[in-house]
Write a protein that binds this DNA or RNA. Structure first.
Length: 508
RNA sequence: CGCGGGGUGGAGCAGUCAGGCAGCUCGCGAGGCUCAUAACCUCGAGGUCGGUGGUUCAAAUCCACCCCCCGCAACCA
């Protein structure tokens, strides 16, 4: 079966109650990498990110800051947008849940589902803490008391609207059986199957305005606003509708963290079924970055700010660490010392040094002019190493194993470094009769670097551009360099002298 | 029997789905090279892949049982 030509990647909508941190950055980075990767291979890709801006917490934060909610969310949303722009993390559309088109879309879908009878009005009775202005579940209480206020919650009843989610449980289960790759990695699929072994019940989707006004008003009852689920999840569709790109919807790949698995794996598909829309193509669930400190660290302000990392190490080194260190789906440890180790070992000593030595010899022996090839067995082995890397990278990226894709490319780079030592062009260069061979060796190595630039572009775009420029391709888009080995360097084509791509950092 | 994840040379990890010489980075020891960012290349020391049993020509990988460690969210109706 042929893969669809289009691809649609989404990040979660980030709740604007905190500044952009490592978790936001990681998933946005992955979306950027996947988009670049598949575009370079001819797919038509659309990516979405944005901010989720309604709810109690936002209204309260705005009140504390002494501004109205809209002013507050404008500022916070702008912070996310600027961060991604400055970090070079690209997206095709940035949606805000306060966008008028989104609000209208949510109201339309709610009205439709209400009209077909899948939204009903009912009374909920539960334990309410007036201090927190929220209900508590039994298991959340500490000795029967609210953990914040240390008072016993009051049993009260409240009327609300509910989505008939339970009615779609069997269909959802059947869908998971039919499409084993719907949720990836498999561990999360199993977790969802476990959730579906119990009745999922119905979902409360409203809040009375007496408790919350900062939200989207229900189209069928102006005393209520919709509460989180329809508001936030529908963004994935409303953005496409707004842009007139609904044909991308069936190809949706949602990138999410494991913390929001249930809303995306249970609530969202049932909502889509009720709305008469196809379920997304795949849910891609990543693990969490664990800080060495405990989870208190976040409230101490000990957050990893992407732009700080960019300033300290360069965005590409930061990208490399995040992509190389985390096996998508699993948790990983955030460790800045490990970042420096990776930067020195893989980027400076491996890739950077290879580029330096090749370009320096090319410059010294031939003034940068690329010489004819002659293809010995060793040369062909070098080409094979890069061909294999290209093939392996595609296989790994399909499975979101980005760390393995990079590992595969670095195997080829190791091969190239070995090739330099074994072919020893610097020794042959002392013998004028071997000049042709020296030129051929360096041409092979320039090709190795050109292929590296191309294969690396989705992961380390800045480095790829620099490398291409050193090789004498300052203008071309890297995708245009997808030429066969030996076809890129026309006679007389020159490379230039290079600055180190990555300076080594001292370890302390 | 709540659910999930993990236990692989000194450290940190990949590999487990699709069984086939136990791999990567760092660190350590010896050598080579001198083009290069004191980088690069080679060799070496170091692991009964948590345990036991099973399937198999073959198990880190599949199956069963056991031991230990870590998470369990939220805008939590």
């Amino acid at each position: 079966m042929a893969e669809p030509q289009r691809l649609y990647f989404t990040t979660p909508l980030f709740y604007v109650n905190a500044e952009p941190h490592l978790g936001h950055t990681y998933v946005t980075l992955v979306a950027d990498v996947l988009a670049r990767f598949w575009r370079a291979r001819g797919r038509t890709v659309f990516t979405l990110t944005g901010t989720d801006e309604h709810g109690d917490k936002i209204a309260q934060a705005a009140a504390r800051a002494g501004v109205d909610p809209k002013t507050h969310v404008d500022r916070m949303s702008g912070l996310f947008r600027e961060t991604w722009d400055q970090a070079g993390l690209r997206y095709d559309h940035f949606i805000r849940t306060t966008d008028p088109h989104h609000v209208a879309f949510v109201r339309r879908i709610l009205a439709e589902i209400h009209a077909k009878g899948d939204i009903y009005f009912d009374r909920y009775a539960g334990l309410y803490c007036f201090g927190c202005e929220r209900f508590y579940q039994e298991r959340e209480l500490e000795n029967g008391l609210c953990p914040d206020h240390r008072v016993a919650p009051t049993e009260i009843a409240e009327d609300n609207y509910f989505f008939r989610m339970g009615a779609y449980q069997e269909r959802l289960l059947a869908l998971l059986e039919e499409r084993p790759d719907l949720i990836w990695p498999e561990g999360y699929r199993n977790e969802v199957l476990a959730m579906l072994r119990e009745p999922i019940g119905d979902l409360c989707i409203s809040r009375p305005k007496t408790r919350l006004t900062w939200g989207i008003e229900l189209p069928f009852d102006d005393r209520y606003v919709t509460y989180v689920w329809f508001d936030a999840l529908l963004n994935y569709v409303s953005a496409l509708e707004h842009r007139g790109l609904m044909e991308f919807w069936p190809t949706a790949h949602h990138l999410i963290g494991k913390d929001i698995l249930k809303p995306h794996a249970v609530f969202w598909p049932t909502m889509l079924m009720a709305a008469g829309l196809p379920v997304y193509r795949r849910l891609c669930v990543h693990g969490h970055w664990k800080m060495q400190q405990d989870k208190m660290s976040k409230s101490l302000g000990n957050v990893v700010r992407p732009l700080d990392m960019k300033a300290r190490y360069g965005m590409d080194a930061f990208r490399y660490y995040l992509l190389r260190e985390m096996a998508f789906g699993y948790d990983a440890d955030w460790n800045e010392a490990a970042l420096v180790t990776r930067l020195n070992a893989d980027l400076a000593n491996g890739l950077g040094n290879l580029a330096s030595r090749v370009l320096a010899m090319q410059q010294r022996y031939f003034g940068g002019v690329v010489q004819p090839l002659e293809a010995t067995a060793a040369d062909l082995a070098l080409r094979a190493a890069f061909a294999e890397a290209a093939e392996a990278m595609e296989r790994h990226v399909e499975q979101l194993a980005l760390h393995r894709a990079l590992e595969a490319l670095w195997r080829a780079l190791d091969h190239a470094n070995k090739y330099v030592v074994e072919q020893a062009p610097f020794t042959l260069a002392k013998d004028p009769e071997k000049r042709g061979r020296v030129g051929a060796i360096l041409h092979e190595l320039c090709e190795a670097l050109r292929h590296t630039a191309q294969l690396l572009e989705p992961f380390l775009p800045e480095t790829a551009r620099k490398l291409a420029a050193y090789l004498g391709f300052p203008e071309e888009r890297l995708a245009d360099l997808a030429l066969p080995w030996g076809a890129a360097f026309a006679p007389g084509r020159r490379t230039t002298a290079a600055q180190p791509l990555f300076p080594r950092l001292e370890t302390t």
